[in-house]
Computed example of a mutant assay.
Amino acid sequence: MSNTDAAPSEIRCHTEDLPVGDVRNPRVEIITSREVPLGGPRAMPVRRTLPQRQRSLIGAWCFVDHYGPDDVSATGGMDVAPHPHTGLQTVSWLFTGEIEHRDSHGVHAMVRPGEVNLMTGGNGICHSEVSTDATSTLHGVQLWVALPDAHRHAPRDFQHHAPGTVDLAGGTAKVFLGTLAGDTSPVRTFTPLLGAEITLEPRAALTLDIDPAFEHGVLVDTGSVSLFDTTLQRAALGYVGTGVPALTLTNLTDETARIVLLGGTPFGEEIVMWWNFVGRNHDEIVAFRDEWQRESDRFGHVEGYTGKVARLPAPSLPNARIQPRRNPPTADPTC
């Protein structure tokens, strides 16, 4: 998915743990979403929780877009022309609908509910995403993972996995990245990560054992869910720092609730994000933009896309050089 902001901000990101204090009831930071128009004839809206001024990364997760349920007859659905990426992996996960994916690695694939598609665009890739004619309602998440310095120039790659459903006491899980509840995804990543869709039965409470070396984010898709003693409404992302061995989740409604659980070890590196590029400094971003505008071989070409615009042009660069931007400083764990 492209970041279609007309004037995207340059962001220097660095992860820092949020102290947890009492691991039985740790501090939860609530990250609210902001609405961003994605595209289509009437601009399909998405809800973006990462990156924000409040927090830039959760593990290596650096971008979280949540969209739908979207009536494509009203919004036009998703039609994102070929656009570039560097230094990241894209993770596509749908609840309803279908998206056609084409990329410059030569992959032509469908994104379908309950099946994860992960594309690696380390040294450079471009791709298009279009909701299909069979789609009446589009609903899902689009996620980016920052690549560590040692692997940020990795070659193009594409992986697909359809996880099974794991029964939990009070719900279910589908683990699309990493390990949870005894299930492990075969999808390869360059840093330790977790990604899972979890449903909670009406009024159910469940406890999930997690890796205490990870920081975690709980994105509420449907319903109202408490994370420990903190209530998270729909589209909010609840963040918990490292050192927590288990998460306690409670569905506060009489309907089935659904969340997306993201986790990973603190990234430990500064990155610079602008538009669809992840780099390490301002000058790299300028060079990536120039290569995309010149149709450099770095990004290749997408075959078979038939939209009105052959490729997305890069927005104008900001007038100023990037300034450092970090996650919040460490706070007193007793607060």
Results as ranks from 00 to 15, higher is better:
A74F: 12
F95S: 10
T242I: 10
N123A: 12
S56G: 15
T253L: 06
G106C: 10
L194T: 02
L227W: 04
G182Y: 05
I99K: 03
G106V: 08
R298P: 04
V23C: 02
L177R: 02
G106M: 06
E270N: 12
Q159L: 01
D229M: 07
T32C: 13
V220S: 12
V175E: 00
M119T: 14
V240C: 04
G21R: 02
T253A: 07
C13R: 14
G21V: 05
G124L: 00
N25Y: 02
G114S: 06
P26M: 04
I11W: 03
G124N: 03
L180E: 04
R325N: 13
D22Y: 07
G97N: 03
D209P: 13
D283S: 15
D254L: 14
L200G: 10
L94T: 05
V175R: 00
G171F: 03
D332P: 13
F95I: 14
P266C: 11
D17E: 11
T306V: 13
G76W: 04
I322E: 10
S296H: 09
P245T: 07
E291V: 06
F95R: 13
L200R: 01
L118E: 07
H101S: 08
G140Y: 02
G304L: 08
G243R: 00
L193P: 09
R294A: 15
L88P: 05
E129Q: 06
G121Q: 02
G195W: 02
S226F: 05
I125Y: 00
N276M: 06
R156G: 13
Q293H: 02
L38T: 02
G238P: 08
M44H: 03
T256A: 08
H216S: 07
A331P: 03
P155T: 01
R53L: 14
V175S: 03
H85P: 08
I322D: 09
E215W: 02
F299T: 11
V145G: 01
R27Y: 09
T49H: 05
A109E: 14
T32I: 04
R258N: 08
W144Y: 01
A173V: 04
L18T: 09
N251R: 01
S104V: 05
V64P: 06
P192Q: 06
S131E: 03
R325V: 09
P186R: 00
L180S: 05
C126M: 09
R53I: 10
K308C: 07
D17A: 14
I58D: 02
A74N: 12
I58F: 01
S185V: 02
P212I: 08
E98H: 04
Q54H: 08
S131I: 02
P328N: 03
P51C: 00
V116L: 14
H105L: 14
P26Y: 01
I58E: 02
N251T: 10
N3D: 15
S92L: 11
V218I: 15
T250Q: 07
R12Q: 15
S73R: 14
Q233N: 15
E291P: 10
T15M: 14
Y239L: 11
D283T: 13
R24V: 06
I11K: 04
A150N: 14
T96E: 14
T191R: 07
G97S: 01
H66C: 08
N117L: 13
L57P: 12
A320Q: 08
V278I: 15
G170H: 06
M44C: 13
D79L: 10
V130A: 05
